[in-house]
């Protein structure tokens, strides 16, 4: 069984600052593998350990994403594919899915393709099912449990008001919810081993995509800090009992106590 797990290299939002003019400042941000994608990598690693799956990982990123490869490989995959292009700086779900689907076709469509439920930065929640549609294979999304038997995967999906078990024959795309597993913290041994694992860089030009397929669809007009409009009243005077009294009195004025 072959699995390709896709991930994205993203800025850590804990380090993103919003300037006074609401501009988003990422200059201080450390970059990391999107947390949701770590769940997908972990699920693939578990399939490698329990079902002898052959796992590789795939990312589309700028030259900066090179730093992600060792971290990804230390989490289980045996080989990394990296579509390296500056276009990753300004992409959308449409372009990213076209690129990933083309890259997957190029390296060979595996039995299973794993994704997280969305990326941590833009959280577009569409690349996984888009790739499935482009490859004309089923998309099993919002998955909390996987079980592989013969040439099929059975997943439990948690979709709001119900859960359901969906079985698909290979090949299939599976997108994981965070509660599916707890991503491992790679051991020193795993990190050292990762340095020796192969990385294959894929050039965008080798994927045979047209200009239209590489042009973002919707035009981003602005990305600005979210303005929180709250009263921000802190009760600082008096005893705890007095603070609580003042709070309840304010809640009463709002008709809530």
């Amino acid at each position: 069984m072959k699995i390709i797990v896709c991930y994205k290299w993203v800025p850590d939002e804990q380090d993103i600052k919003i300037a006074a003019d609401l501009k988003v400042d990422m200059s201080m941000a450390k970059w990391k593998i999107s947390e949701y994608d770590k769940n997908a990598i972990e699920e693939a690693a578990l399939q490698a350990e329990n079902n002898a799956a052959e796992v590789t990982c795939l990312t589309f990123g700028t030259s900066k994403a090179k730093q992600s490869l060792k971290d990804a490989l230390s989490r289980g995959p045996e080989k990394a594919y990296w579509v390296n292009d500056a276009k990753a700086e300004n992409t959308d779900g449409f372009v990213t899915a076209n690129i990933l689907a083309a890259a997957i076709k190029k390296v060979g469509i595996p039995d299973l393709i794993f994704f997280g439920e969305g990326s941590e930065d833009s959280y577009g929640q569409q690349v996984g099912p888009r790739v499935a549609a482009l490859l004309d294979i089923p998309a099993l999304t919002f998955v909390t449990k996987t079980a592989v038997k013969d040439d099929a995967i059975t997943t439990t999906r948690s979709i709001g008001n119900c859960t359901e078990d969906v079985t698909a024959s290979f090949p299939a795309v599976v997108c994981m919810l965070p509660e599916i597993n707890k991503p491992r913290i790679p051991s020193l041994k795993q990190v050292l081993k990762a340095s020796k694992k192969p990385v294959e860089e894929i050039k965008l030009a080798d994927l045979g995509l047209s200009d239209a397929e590489l042009t973002v669809k919707n035009k981003v007009k602005s990305i600005q800090g979210f303005v929180m409009n709250r009263k921000n009243k802190l009760y600082q005077d008096g005893s705890s009992a007095e603070k609580v009294k003042a709070l309840v009195s304010d809640l009463a004025k709002e008709g809530l106590a």
Binding site: E13, V24, S122, S222, Q224
Partner: peptide
């Protein structure tokens, strides 16, 4: 970015 920013 998990809610820090709004994209138009």
């Amino acid at each position: 970015y998990s809610g820090i920013a709004v994209c138009t």
